[in-house]
Design a protein around this nucleic acid. Structure first.
Lengths: 168, 168
DNA sequence: TATTGTTATACTCTATAACTATA
DNA sequence: TATAGTTATAGAGTATAACAATA
């Protein structure tokens, strides 16, 4: 290799490294996106194979699991970040499976409250246990300190994003 | 408030904090998932409004943008984590929009190579610039040091997950 | 026989907007 | 009039498997 070529390569390398540093936010986002896609696909695969469930369904059930008295559909919509109309469809499918039931409370008959059935509670409990196991497994090579750091950092990121949405 | 009530509240708080520490991997995952969902929805909204494009399309175009000579569909499938059959559909839509073209190289006529058209290159260039701006904006409240730390940490996580998939 | 893409299918998710019943 | 859900619709994404052409 000639001196000129060698020099050119070094320069390219330096420029390349400089470029990398120029767009750290973009790089972080692309990396987060591909990472969550990788993990999501794996989790989706296992949820489907072992529980015939989807990720949005799991998410919705998790919200109800925390609220024994159930949640209004509007509140469910906010917490799952799914539009009102689509929450209706999600809940309907889960109701057909016997995991969720809908009730209209006395007082305001416009309101619909969704809550887990007994079967839904048992079923989600098993799902949650498996889900936790899968996550521990997938993150096995990440040390505890890093996990803790990431917990804090991701929270900062979420707050920042929340503060800069179109509607705010 | 009585002493007993106050004591009970303290205990609840302590137990709650202890519980939080018990499942850090799960908590990290749920937080990453809701964060990427929040940001993805925002980016999707803007991509649709300003470029009539979807996130998977953006992802696919980004891969081709880095490879002026184009990529085989199989390779595109791997890089975008989209199945072969669905890559065909994605590329077809982008071809109809005139952003991508397909070619069969001499030598192995089973192969299809996708590459950006001139228009596709220009179009994606504008998309990438806007996309980078959006990300910087959404991450504006996160300091540079944290962004750098996260870049490293997310990479560790991705590698760990990759090492523990079903097929490995 | 193995590989590369394509086609077919079924289902779910996503987004938007119009609509109904109730307050 | 405003609110809570529902319905309708259109378009994409996702996963699986069967299939054709080529090597």
């Amino acid at each position: 290799m000639s001196e000129i070529e060698s020099g050119a390569l070094d320069l390219e390398f330096i420029l390349d490294e400089a470029n990398k540093q120029q767009k750290p936010e973009l790089r972080l986002w692309l990396r987060m996106l591909s990472t969550t896609k990788l993990i999501s696909q794996e989790i989706r695969r296992r949820l489907r194979a072992e529980f015939s469930a989807t990720l949005p369904q799991f998410d919705l059930l998790a919200q109800l699991y925390r609220e024994p008295d159930g949640l209004r559909l509007g509140e469910l919509s906010k917490r799952t970040m799914v539009t009102n109309g689509n929450v209706t469809g999600l809940v309907e499918r889960l109701e057909q499976d016997g995991l969720v039931k809908r009730e209209t409370p006395d007082g305001d008959r416009r309101v619909t409250v969704a809550r887990l059935t007994e079967r839904g509670t048992e079923y989600f409990s098993a799902m949650a246990e498996a889900h936790e196991r899968w996550l521990k497994d997938l993150m096995a090579d990440v040390d505890h300190a890093t996990v803790d750091t990431m917990l804090t950092d991701v929270n900062r990121l979420k707050k920042s994003a929340g503060n800069h949405l179109s509607g705010s």
